[in-house]
């Protein structure tokens, strides 16, 4: 069942009026969205609706054309005042506050599993190596992969790779976790193990923005679902209401097609 997080109004992510075009193709058309601390927001929508681009605009892997992204009140990508873009080192520092999990895992193939977890905390965040390694071992234990710590990613199954991907993001102690279709590249029988890890994260109070086609996860775990279509948010609300009594015709059509 949907968790009821502590009544908090502390906003972690605040997206205001994002627009983004690729050439003449308007992919985001004024999207605004907030995620409060400890909450899980699922972004649903057909492919091409702009949901992955929205996620990639949050940490400026794509540079939005207009609009603003605030993380815990600090603007991402633009300096204070909003007219001067951040330098690449300033932007890198902000990105390190946000964890990201990718559809195709994107683990670093030259590093072992535990090195994948420890790499950025040691070399980007400059944290103490021994502490980082101890925490990384604990995280691997938490995602059930302690035995794989010295294996290379190429030796793992897709589900194991994605659990490493999640642990790698957690090792940064991020303020916000972004999930970009984390189960879409997995064989159906491997989806469950990844969803289970994501559920425990959501229930333990992580702040998560999840782009997914996994309706079960959205229904059971999200605090809020957002439906995107054509670069806009067409409906948002609590999952129980959204899945039982969608308010818009577009949402009804979407649910008919995607929820069997």
């Amino acid at each position: 069942m949907a968790k009821k997080p502590a009544e908090t109004s502390e906003t972690v992510l605040d997206i205001r009026g994002l627009t983004k075009s690729f050439g003449s193709n308007l992919v985001l058309d004024g999207v605004s969205l907030t995620v409060a601390k400890g909450r899980t927001v699922c972004v649903l929508g057909p492919s091409g609706s702009g949901k992955s681009t929205l996620l990639r605009c949050v940490n400026w892997l794509e540079k939005p054309d207009q609009g603003a992204v605030y993380l815990s009140g600090r603007r991402i990508g633009m300096r204070e005042g909003g007219s001067i873009p951040m330098s690449s080192s300033e932007l890198a520092r902000e990105r390190a506050r946000i964890g990201m999990v990718f559809q195709h895992f994107n683990l670093w193939p030259h590093l072992t599993v535990i090195q994948n977890l420890a790499e950025a905390p040691i070399h980007v965040q400059k944290r103490n190596r021994d502490e980082v390694m101890a925490e990384a071992a604990a995280l691997l234990d938490r995602v059930g992969l302690a035995a794989k710590k010295d294996d290379f990613p190429s030796r793992l199954s897709g589900g194991q790779k994605q659990r490493v991907g999640i642990a790698r993001a957690l090792a940064m102690k991020p303020e916000l976790l972004l999930f970009d279709e984390p189960t879409s590249a997995l064989d159906p029988e491997l989806v469950g193990e990844v969803v289970a890890v994501m559920k425990t994260l959501a229930e333990s109070g992580s702040t998560m923005l999840v782009v997914t086609h996994e309706m079960g996860f959205a229904r059971e775990t999200a605090d809020e679902v957002v439906l995107m279509d054509g670069g806009r948010i067409v409906e948002s609300g609590e999952p129980s209401a959204f899945f039982k009594k969608p308010k818009t015709e577009r949402a009804r059509q979407f649910l008919q097609r995607y929820v069997s």
């Binding site: 892997l61 932007l91 946000i98 193939p109 950025a120 980007v124 965040q125 940064m172």
Partner: peptide
């Protein structure tokens, strides 16, 4: 390119991106 992009998302940029992520894979 995806693993380089992941490194960017994790806060790598400039020389460290090359020495830690790009060139180890290139030389291997």
């Amino acid at each position: 390119r995806e693993t380089f992009e992941a490194a960017t998302a994790f806060g790598y940029h400039g020389p460290r991106l090359y020495t830690r992520i790009v060139f180890p894979q290139v030389f291997l």
